[in-house]
């Protein structure tokens, strides 16, 4: 990809710029689509239609219109807020999730950076998100925001443990932290002759690992049933309460970017990343990008589906679930996968 860009772009810095801007483009376009999709999914699940007017066909331009509206809105900072932290928080939030995309192999021809510690880097950099949320909650000088921020701190710290442990159990199988290599390992139809050699089919414990990972990633992305930091009906809007306009929009963008990020990580670790499910059919760099995003979107859709089905957990139950169920289970699973790996 980099060579391909260098072949027609003049200078090195431009290439690097274009190269690094690609994930941003993907996130932005995806966010536009995902927010629209969320509305449509919500609408149809609830026997409604969702947006239908803006842009003509099924309200496709609704998110664009909202974006325009948000840009035009007044940038309100509460009088007693800590202005600097308040203004910085959304940027840090978005930067954190944007930076994580660098280690995602979008296709066999494109990965932001071939770093060997890819997964580790992603886990580390997304932790910044909780920092930004605490910043937002604290700087808002609003008690509801503060409660939301406190919940986030507890939630993110707790749920990182099962996430990391499940990722670790995958790493035991792959033997590498580089997501590109993880994906390359999953090429071909190894299992039973017809199943793609995705890691989810590797052993029954991998399915459990995926379920644990998915639950933990829901919590990491603050999605229902773990959307306690925002929890509209309890904390008004949690850490977002005092935000409006584009700053709020950035939080929203971060939420969706996070969903995609965790879905893509899930797709890479368990569903073969950019590998085609049909072996060499529909394979290649371009198809690879399609499959990657498609798999990510399927997981995103499941997240949305869950959101519009389930109620929300309480904060102590959230902790219970994490410390009493997910973490022990993930450790047991880790051991089992290791044993499986030793035996077979």
């Amino acid at each position: 990809m980099q060579q391909f860009l260098e072949s027609f772009l003049p200078a090195g810095p431009v290439v690097v710029f274009v190269f690094s801007i690609i994930p941003l483009m993907i996130i932005l376009i995806y966010a536009l689509f995902a927010i629209w999709l969320e509305r449509k999914v919500a609408g149809h699940i609830q026997d409604r239609l969702g947006p239908m007017q803006t842009g003509g066909w099924h309200g496709w331009a609704q998110t664009l219109a909202d974006l325009l509206k948000m840009i035009q809105k007044e940038d309100i900072v509460p009088a007693k807020a800590d202005r600097f932290l308040f203004k910085m928080a959304p940027f840090i939030a978005f930067a954190a999730s944007y930076a994580a995309f660098v280690a995602i192999p979008f296709s066999s021809g494109y990965i932001g950076s071939m770093i060997d510690i890819g997964v580790f880097y992603i886990v580390a950099i997304t932790s910044l998100l909780s920092v930004s949320i605490i910043m937002a909650g604290w700087a808002s000088n609003n008690k509801w925001s503060l409660l939301g921020a406190m919940r986030t701190a507890a939630q993110t710290v707790s749920y990182e443990v099962p996430t990391v442990v499940t990722i670790l159990s995958v790493i035991i199988v792959t033997g590498t932290l580089n997501l590109m290599e993880v994906t390359e390992m999953q090429t071909g139809n190894a299992f039973l002759g017809f199943l793609p050699s995705w890691l989810i089919f590797h052993s029954p414990f991998m399915v459990i690992a995926f379920v644990l990972f998915f639950i933990a990633s829901l919590a990491e992305a603050h999605r229902v049933p773990f959307d306690l930091p925002e929890s509209e009906s309890e904390l008004v809007g949690g850490y977002q309460t005092e935000y409006s306009g584009m700053r709020w929009g950035l939080f929203m963008l971060t939420e969706y970017a996070d969903m995609l990020l965790l879905s893509l990580v899930g797709a890479t670790l368990f569903f073969g990343g950019w590998n085609s499910p049909f072996g060499s059919f529909m394979d290649g760099p371009v198809w690879g990008a399609f499959w990657m995003l498609f798999k990510g979107m399927v997981l995103v859709f499941v997240m949305m589906w869950l959101r519009w089905t389930l109620p929300r957990l309480r904060v102590d139950q959230l902790m219970n679930l994490c410390w009493k169920y997910l973490i022990p289970l993930s450790f047991v699973n880790l051991v089992l996968i290791a044993l499986w790996e030793m035996i077979f």
């Binding site: 919500a42 699940i45 609830q46 026997d47 409604r48 229902v224 049933p225 959307d227 929890s231 009906s233 309890e234 519009w308 089905t309 389930l310 109620p311 929300r312």
Partner: peptide, 16 residues
Amino acid sequence: FGLDIGAFTPFLYCFI
């Protein structure tokens, strides 16, 4: 009540 607990969809089914 469902809405308070965080379940949005039953609320709309009830409204239908």
